[in-house]
Design a protein around this nucleic acid. Structure first.
Length: 464
RNA sequence: GGCGCGGUAGCCAAGUGGUAAGGCGGAGGUCUGCAAAACCUCUAUUCGUGGGUUCGAUCCCCACCCGCGCCUCCA
């Protein structure tokens, strides 16, 4: 069975067939770089990372673009509040973003275009829309997209034009629009923008948010591409607007598969600053959790399901990963240099793992396959029924899986000389059956953050 | 008002018209100087509630209850 994905356009799971055989072009909405990203953002990026890795594992050549929104109301407001140039302000959060995704084991996309580097492309697109009579200029010099001119508007969100009820968030002063539902392609400069402005045929101003993604995706991936991802909140209006703009300009179908990631909640409640459960990666690292545990928890729930992020969940992730690590170590201790055939119990797991991910990235099925294999493998090791060549083959399989999950390999942890000396001293005490001294030394080692385990092969040390 | 999602063991979380994956936690056991880890066994007669369809429903249909999302720039 090959890959099937849920397409928001059809609201159904469809077989995945790229526009060009063997090649996938994918665009994912990236961060707005005005503050530190929160774990909800990372949930989306980790889902996209899983998709990306699985596509590569399947054998596709992949071009993945993730944009950086480095100009919008929030970036402008925040940089002006600090009194520093926009570019300098956003640089700080772009750096933080890359630092964070590294900590979470998120692979780099092929391109990270920044909106401010593509203003001319946006202007070109807007010009075409004006020429076609789809966009219009208002009195203040802003340009709007007329949704009346794009009958399919609403196809992604499955919203009727008639069903669009003006929400509280429609600014009251936007009287210059012909229709309240029209959206801005270009915003004329206003005092609030400070020195953030670009010249255009319609005067100074800046692009609207939606056109940024249309311009950069079409430029880097072409008029039609395979996959576009984002959080569910982007379905409307952002992605709806992208479709309207892009298809109006190119006359071609914009995106074949739209994939959207559900939100997460923290301790059963919506994440919000007022509830004090608004979490950034830094917050969790300060609490002593590692990027690997955080990645595991964010990864382990199916992407279309609301995820409940909890400290308990992080502890559960830590325990589960420890089991994986122990299993890997047991195999390593047994493995030969070269691999033989995979044992039956691993062959079963191999198929099940793959089937899970192919089924719209059903990670739960795949993790179940992993743990089923782990149990069977441990049993076989206990029974001394694993040949060195088989052990190597299973290690290779785990390596292959980790290419997709990005979470199975432990972070390298090197003991220092001091801890090693304590471990040696403890071994000496144990050999002398001096249990009191042995236990005291174990305490000593624990205080330095390490756990000693006595095994038939001698003591093993791991980070607490 | 419109569109849509979800309610499965203490917690997290899959799943299917044929009688409940997996993880964490918990209990007992094997092993161990003691631990730890690992392994074995156990831990939902039951899938929000009430009807219906069916030989059979957690899974399909209807109603209801509860929680949640979107309806113009929040992943």
């Amino acid at each position: 069975m090959s890959l099937r994905l849920f397409n928001t356009l059809s609201r159904a799971v469809e077989p995945f067939e790229p526009l060009e055989p063997g090649r996938v072009r994918m665009y994912t909405c990236g961060p707005t770089v005005y503050n530190r990203a929160h774990i909800g953002n990372f949930r989306a990026y980790i889902f996209e990372d899983l998709l990306r890795r699985h596509l590569k594992w399947t054998g596709y050549r992949l071009t993945h673009v993730m944009n950086l929104t480095d100009v919008d109301d929030k970036t402008i407001r925040a940089s002006m509040a600090e009194g520093i140039p926009l570019k300098q302000f956003t640089r700080r959060y772009i750096d933080a973003f890359f630092n964070d995704i590294d900590l979470l084991g998120i692979e780099r996309a092929e391109h990270y275009p920044a909106a401010t580097d593509h203003i001319p492309d946006m202007i070109d697109m807007i010009r075409v829309l004006l020429d076609k009579g789809i966009a219009y200029r208002s009195d203040d010099g802003s340009i709007y997209f007329s949704i009346q001119k794009f009958p399919a508007y609403g196809c992604l969100a499955h919203l009727d034009r008639a069903g669009l009820r003006p929400g509280a968030r429609v600014a009251q002063d936007e009287f210059e629009k012909e229709d309240a539902a029209d959206f801005a392609l270009w915003k004329a400069w206003s005092e609030k923008d400070g020195d953030v402005a670009w010249d255009s045929p319609w005067g100074r101003g800046r692009p609207g948010w939606h056109i940024e993604c249309s311009a950069m995706s079409v430029k880097l991936l072409g008029p039609s591409f395979d996959i576009h991802c984002g959080g569910v909140d982007n379905i409307f209006p952002h992605h709806e607007c992208e479709i309207a703009q892009s298809e109006s300009v190119t006359g071609r179908p914009f995106v074949k598969y739209w994939l959207h990631c559900a939100h997460l909640i923290v301790d059963g409640k919506k994440m919000s600053k007022s509830l004090g459960n608004f979490l950034t990666l830094d917050d969790l690292l300060k609490e002593g959790f590692g990027g690997r545990e955080i990645r595991y928890q964010l990864l382990a729930t199916h992407y279309r399901q609301t995820l409940n992020f909890t400290r308990d969940g992080l502890h559960a992730a830590r325990a589960a990963l420890l089991r994986v690590d122990e299993f890997t170590e047991r195999l390593r201790a047994r493995a030969a240099e070269t691999a033989d055939a995979l044992p039956d119990w691993a062959e079963t797991g191999r198929a099940a793992f793959r089937a899970g991910l192919d089924n719209d990235l059903n990670i739960s099925e795949s993790l179940a396959a992993l743990f089923d294999m782990l149990r069977a493998g441990n049993k076989a090791l206990d029974d001394d029924a694993v040949s060195p060549g088989a052990a190597r083959a299973v290690l290779q399989l785990l390596d292959e899986w980790d290419g997709v999950l990005g979470v199975l390999k432990p972070a390298a942890s090197e003991t220092d000389a001091e801890v090693r000396a304590l471990v040696d001293a403890r071994q000496a005490a144990r050999a002398a059956k001096n249990w009191a001294e042995s236990d005291r030394l174990r305490e000593e080692i624990a205080r330095r953050g390490w756990i000693v385990q006595d095994t038939p092969q001698g003591p093993k040390v791991r980070k607490a």
